[in-house]
Structure formats: C-alpha cells, structure tokens
C-alpha cells in the first residue's frame, strides 16, 4: 500500500499511489492511514487522483479513517476519478466529506 504523506500549507496531504482501494487492500489502507494521521495536523487531504477504482470495502475504509481521526479534525478528498466519484455519490457519502475537484483546488484552500 503506497501512501505518500506530505505537509503542505499546514495540512497533511496523503497521496494514494495505488490504482485501487478495494477489498484486497482496504484493511491495509486503514491501518496505514491510522499511522500516518496520528498526531498530525487537524486538516488531512487525501489525494485520490491516481485511484481509478474504489469498491464499498474501500469506501468503508475511508469512512473508518474519518471516524478514527476524531473530533476537531477534518478529512478532505481531492481528485476523485469518475468511477470513484460515482461510488461516493450513489452511497451519499459525498455529503459526508469535503470533496475538491483537484489537488490544486484543495491547495487553494490551504489554511482556510
């Protein structure tokens, strides 16, 4: 599970360098995110622009990451590819996250 954490504009960015977040890797994703986000900035942006496919297990893992970050911290999503965007929309989880069209758009709001 390739996740690349970076700090940008006071936020923690996590670039998912994987083509898929599916049932085969959902638990790994959640565990790695838990390690990466622990004790970091309140604002976390997940860059999904390299992820072409996410199934309901992957979706559940992203929701789980949001929940384990706890009160007062934000998990935002950026760069959803069409199939990934569809999964968030059809399950109405698009209303739970702040979703940026692109990583650049999310960066524009750094520190907001």
């Amino acid at each position: 599970m390739q996740l690349r954490p970076e700090t940008r504009g006071g936020a923690l960015w996590v670039i998912v360098e994987e083509p898929r977040i599916d049932a085969a890797v959902a638990i790994q994703f959640k565990d790695r995110m838990r390690e990466i986000a622990a004790g970091g900035p309140d604002r976390v942006v997940l860059d999904l622009s390299q992820v072409g496919f996410l199934d309901s297990s992957g979706l559940g893992a992203v929701v789980a990451v949001l929940k384990l970050m706890g009160e007062g911290r934000r998990l935002e999503l950026a760069g959803l590819t069409p199939t990934v965007e569809k999964v968030f929309r059809l399950t109405r989880m698009d209303s739970v996250f702040t979703i940026h069209e692109s990583p650049e758009a999310a960066l524009g709001e750094a520190g907001a």
């Binding site: 309901s56 979706l59 559940g60 893992a61 929701v63 789980a64 949001l66 929940k67 999964v87 059809l90 399950t91 989880m93 739970v96």
Partner: peptide
C-alpha cells in the same frame, strides 16, 4: 450516521 458497510447492494441496485 456514518456507516462503514452495507453499501454493496445499494451500488448493485443503482447500477
């Protein structure tokens, strides 16, 4: 308010 599962059949039916 924040389910981590139960999305599978929602997606199958929608698509």
């Amino acid at each position: 308010t924040l389910p981590e599962g139960g999305f599978g059949w929602t997606l199958i039916r929608a698509l």
